[in-house]
Design a protein around this nucleic acid. Sequence first.
DNA 1: ATAGTATATATTAAAATATGAATATACGGA
DNA 2: TCCGTATATTCATATTTTAATATATACTAT
Lengths: 87, 87
Amino acid sequence: MNAAHKHKANILKALGHPIRFCIVEGLLAGEQNVGTMTHCTSVPQPTVSQHLNVLKAAGILKAERIGNEMHYSVCSAEARKIAAALK
Amino acid sequence: MNAAHKHKANILKALGHPIRFCIVEGLLAGEQNVGTMTHCTSVPQPTVSQHLNVLKAAGILKAERIGNEMHYSVCSAEARKIAAALK
DNA sequence: ATAGTATATATTAAAATATGAATATACGGA
DNA sequence: TCCGTATATTCATATTTTAATATATACTAT
Protein backbone atom coordinates (compact mmCIF):
# COMPACT_ATOMS: atom_id res chain seq x y z
CA MET A 1 0.00 0.00 0.00
CA ASN A 2 2.08 2.90 -1.30
CA ALA A 3 1.52 6.54 -2.17
CA ALA A 4 0.12 5.71 -5.58
CA HIS A 5 -2.52 3.55 -3.95
CA LYS A 6 -3.48 6.36 -1.64
CA HIS A 7 -3.76 8.85 -4.45
CA LYS A 8 -5.97 6.57 -6.52
CA ALA A 9 -8.09 5.68 -3.51
CA ASN A 10 -8.60 9.38 -2.83
CA ILE A 11 -9.99 9.96 -6.27
CA LEU A 12 -12.24 6.93 -5.99
CA LYS A 13 -13.44 8.06 -2.61
CA ALA A 14 -14.29 11.52 -3.88
CA LEU A 15 -16.24 10.00 -6.77
CA GLY A 16 -17.86 7.45 -4.48
CA HIS A 17 -20.88 9.50 -3.56
CA PRO A 18 -24.05 9.58 -5.65
CA ILE A 19 -24.31 13.35 -5.77
CA ARG A 20 -20.66 13.84 -6.61
CA PHE A 21 -20.64 11.16 -9.25
CA CYS A 22 -23.73 12.74 -10.74
CA ILE A 23 -22.02 16.14 -10.78
CA VAL A 24 -18.95 14.76 -12.53
CA GLU A 25 -21.00 12.91 -15.11
CA GLY A 26 -22.97 16.06 -15.74
CA LEU A 27 -19.80 18.07 -16.22
CA LEU A 28 -18.42 15.51 -18.63
CA ALA A 29 -21.66 15.79 -20.55
CA GLY A 30 -21.27 19.53 -20.78
CA GLU A 31 -23.09 21.22 -17.92
CA GLN A 32 -21.11 23.85 -16.16
CA ASN A 33 -22.90 26.10 -13.69
CA VAL A 34 -24.06 25.36 -10.20
CA GLY A 35 -27.72 26.17 -10.83
CA THR A 36 -27.96 23.42 -13.41
CA MET A 37 -26.32 20.92 -11.08
CA THR A 38 -28.74 21.90 -8.36
CA HIS A 39 -31.65 21.01 -10.62
CA CYS A 40 -30.06 17.86 -11.96
CA THR A 41 -29.17 16.46 -8.56
CA SER A 42 -32.27 17.79 -6.80
CA VAL A 43 -30.40 18.80 -3.66
CA PRO A 44 -30.15 22.32 -2.23
CA GLN A 45 -27.53 24.63 -3.68
CA PRO A 46 -25.35 24.80 -0.54
CA THR A 47 -25.10 21.03 -0.60
CA VAL A 48 -23.96 21.11 -4.22
CA SER A 49 -21.34 23.70 -3.30
CA GLN A 50 -20.01 21.54 -0.53
CA HIS A 51 -19.68 18.55 -2.80
CA LEU A 52 -18.02 20.70 -5.43
CA ASN A 53 -15.46 21.60 -2.80
CA VAL A 54 -14.77 17.98 -2.04
CA LEU A 55 -14.21 17.28 -5.72
CA LYS A 56 -12.00 20.33 -6.06
CA ALA A 57 -9.96 19.33 -3.01
CA ALA A 58 -9.42 15.92 -4.57
CA GLY A 59 -8.05 17.59 -7.68
CA ILE A 60 -10.88 16.40 -9.86
CA LEU A 61 -12.43 19.74 -10.78
CA LYS A 62 -11.21 23.19 -11.47
CA ALA A 63 -13.31 26.32 -11.29
CA GLU A 64 -13.32 29.56 -13.21
CA ARG A 65 -15.52 32.52 -12.59
CA ILE A 66 -17.20 33.94 -15.64
CA GLY A 67 -19.16 36.99 -14.69
CA ASN A 68 -21.76 36.00 -12.24
CA GLU A 69 -21.35 32.28 -12.68
CA MET A 70 -18.76 29.71 -11.81
CA HIS A 71 -17.77 27.32 -14.55
CA TYR A 72 -16.53 23.98 -13.34
CA SER A 73 -14.75 21.41 -15.42
CA VAL A 74 -13.14 18.04 -14.87
CA CYS A 75 -9.37 18.42 -14.85
CA SER A 76 -8.37 14.93 -13.73
CA ALA A 77 -7.53 12.43 -16.44
CA GLU A 78 -8.03 9.65 -13.93
CA ALA A 79 -11.55 10.78 -13.14
CA ARG A 80 -12.36 10.91 -16.84
CA LYS A 81 -11.08 7.39 -17.31
CA ILE A 82 -13.07 6.11 -14.36
CA ALA A 83 -16.27 7.70 -15.62
CA ALA A 84 -15.60 6.28 -19.08
CA ALA A 85 -15.03 2.84 -17.59
CA LEU A 86 -18.46 2.98 -15.96
CA LYS A 87 -20.37 4.14 -19.04
CA MET B 1 -29.23 11.14 -9.78
CA ASN B 2 -30.87 7.78 -10.41
CA ALA B 3 -30.40 4.20 -9.29
CA ALA B 4 -27.56 3.61 -11.75
CA HIS B 5 -25.66 6.51 -10.24
CA LYS B 6 -26.11 5.09 -6.78
CA HIS B 7 -24.91 1.67 -7.83
CA LYS B 8 -21.79 3.03 -9.48
CA ALA B 9 -21.10 5.35 -6.56
CA ASN B 10 -21.35 2.39 -4.22
CA ILE B 11 -18.67 0.51 -6.09
CA LEU B 12 -16.44 3.57 -6.20
CA LYS B 13 -16.96 4.14 -2.51
CA ALA B 14 -16.01 0.57 -1.67
CA LEU B 15 -12.84 0.91 -3.76
CA GLY B 16 -12.14 4.36 -2.33
CA HIS B 17 -10.02 3.29 0.58
CA PRO B 18 -6.29 2.63 0.30
CA ILE B 19 -6.37 -0.76 1.95
CA ARG B 20 -9.34 -1.95 -0.06
CA PHE B 21 -7.91 -0.68 -3.31
CA CYS B 22 -4.67 -2.42 -2.48
CA ILE B 23 -6.53 -5.66 -1.78
CA VAL B 24 -8.37 -5.51 -5.09
CA GLU B 25 -5.22 -4.75 -7.06
CA GLY B 26 -3.50 -7.63 -5.33
CA LEU B 27 -6.34 -9.98 -6.21
CA LEU B 28 -6.28 -8.86 -9.83
CA ALA B 29 -2.56 -9.59 -9.83
CA GLY B 30 -3.15 -13.11 -8.58
CA GLU B 31 -3.00 -13.21 -4.79
CA GLN B 32 -5.81 -15.02 -3.16
CA ASN B 33 -5.49 -15.76 0.53
CA VAL B 34 -5.91 -13.49 3.51
CA GLY B 35 -2.46 -14.05 4.94
CA THR B 36 -0.82 -12.64 1.84
CA MET B 37 -3.07 -9.59 1.92
CA THR B 38 -2.20 -9.04 5.54
CA HIS B 39 1.48 -8.92 4.65
CA CYS B 40 0.99 -6.81 1.57
CA THR B 41 -1.17 -4.20 3.29
CA SER B 42 0.70 -4.29 6.61
CA VAL B 43 -2.44 -4.06 8.71
CA PRO B 44 -3.66 -6.66 11.23
CA GLN B 45 -5.58 -9.62 9.89
CA PRO B 46 -8.93 -8.67 11.47
CA THR B 47 -8.73 -5.33 9.72
CA VAL B 48 -8.18 -7.06 6.41
CA SER B 49 -11.17 -9.29 7.09
CA GLN B 50 -13.34 -6.29 7.80
CA HIS B 51 -12.34 -4.64 4.55
CA LEU B 52 -12.91 -7.88 2.69
CA ASN B 53 -16.41 -7.84 4.07
CA VAL B 54 -17.01 -4.33 2.80
CA LEU B 55 -15.85 -5.37 -0.66
CA LYS B 56 -17.97 -8.49 -0.56
CA ALA B 57 -21.02 -6.51 0.54
CA ALA B 58 -20.49 -4.18 -2.41
CA GLY B 59 -20.53 -7.17 -4.74
CA ILE B 60 -16.92 -6.73 -5.75
CA LEU B 61 -15.47 -9.94 -4.36
CA LYS B 62 -16.56 -13.49 -3.94
CA ALA B 63 -15.05 -15.98 -1.55
CA GLU B 64 -14.50 -19.70 -1.70
CA ARG B 65 -13.08 -21.86 1.01
CA ILE B 66 -10.36 -24.25 -0.05
CA GLY B 67 -9.32 -26.38 2.86
CA ASN B 68 -8.02 -24.16 5.52
CA GLU B 69 -7.84 -21.03 3.41
CA MET B 70 -10.30 -18.65 1.85
CA HIS B 71 -9.74 -17.75 -1.76
CA TYR B 72 -11.06 -14.39 -2.75
CA SER B 73 -11.51 -13.17 -6.29
CA VAL B 74 -12.87 -10.10 -8.03
CA CYS B 75 -16.29 -10.84 -9.48
CA SER B 76 -17.34 -7.36 -10.54
CA ALA B 77 -16.69 -6.35 -14.11
CA GLU B 78 -17.05 -2.71 -13.11
CA ALA B 79 -14.35 -3.00 -10.48
CA ARG B 80 -12.04 -4.63 -13.00
CA LYS B 81 -12.64 -1.82 -15.45
CA ILE B 82 -11.99 0.82 -12.82
CA ALA B 83 -8.74 -0.81 -11.76
CA ALA B 84 -7.70 -1.08 -15.38
CA ALA B 85 -8.51 2.58 -15.95
CA LEU B 86 -6.15 3.51 -13.11
CA LYS B 87 -3.24 1.35 -14.26
C1' DA C 1 -9.38 -35.22 21.45
C1' DT C 2 -5.83 -31.69 20.99
C1' DA C 3 -2.99 -28.37 18.98
C1' DG C 4 -1.93 -25.31 15.35
C1' DT C 5 -3.03 -22.45 11.45
C1' DA C 6 -6.24 -19.55 8.88
C1' DT C 7 -9.94 -16.56 9.00
C1' DA C 8 -14.17 -14.32 10.99
C1' DT C 9 -16.93 -11.80 14.34
C1' DA C 10 -18.03 -8.60 18.22
C1' DT C 11 -17.29 -4.59 20.63
C1' DT C 12 -15.97 -0.20 21.17
C1' DA C 13 -13.70 4.34 20.79
C1' DA C 14 -12.07 7.76 17.72
C1' DA C 15 -12.23 10.08 13.52
C1' DA C 16 -14.27 11.37 9.31
C1' DT C 17 -18.28 12.53 6.69
C1' DA C 18 -22.95 13.95 5.69
C1' DT C 19 -26.97 16.98 6.33
C1' DG C 20 -29.44 21.14 6.82
C1' DA C 21 -30.19 25.87 8.13
C1' DA C 22 -28.68 30.26 8.21
C1' DT C 23 -25.82 33.56 6.49
C1' DA C 24 -22.21 35.65 3.70
C1' DT C 25 -19.91 37.04 -0.52
C1' DA C 26 -19.36 38.24 -5.56
C1' DC C 27 -20.96 40.17 -9.50
C1' DG C 28 -24.07 42.66 -12.96
C1' DG C 29 -27.45 45.96 -13.84
C1' DA C 30 -30.84 49.80 -12.63
C1' DT D 1 -25.30 52.91 -4.36
C1' DC D 2 -28.82 49.40 -3.93
C1' DC D 3 -31.05 45.13 -5.72
C1' DG D 4 -31.27 40.65 -7.54
C1' DT D 5 -29.05 36.57 -8.89
C1' DA D 6 -25.38 33.12 -8.34
C1' DT D 7 -22.48 30.81 -5.41
C1' DA D 8 -19.78 30.03 -1.03
C1' DT D 9 -19.11 29.58 3.88
C1' DT D 10 -20.18 28.55 8.60
C1' DC D 11 -21.87 25.87 12.17
C1' DA D 12 -24.29 22.36 14.82
C1' DT D 13 -25.63 17.85 14.71
C1' DA D 14 -26.34 13.14 13.13
C1' DT D 15 -24.43 9.34 10.93
C1' DT D 16 -20.97 6.48 9.12
C1' DT D 17 -16.25 4.72 8.86
C1' DT D 18 -12.21 3.23 10.64
C1' DA D 19 -9.01 0.81 13.62
C1' DA D 20 -7.91 -1.90 17.53
C1' DT D 21 -8.45 -5.49 20.72
C1' DA D 22 -10.18 -9.56 22.15
C1' DT D 23 -12.38 -13.61 21.09
C1' DA D 24 -14.54 -17.11 18.23
C1' DT D 25 -14.92 -20.38 14.40
C1' DA D 26 -13.33 -23.63 10.63
C1' DC D 27 -10.29 -26.74 9.17
C1' DT D 28 -5.96 -29.96 9.16
C1' DA D 29 -2.89 -32.95 11.12
C1' DT D 30 -1.25 -35.58 14.95
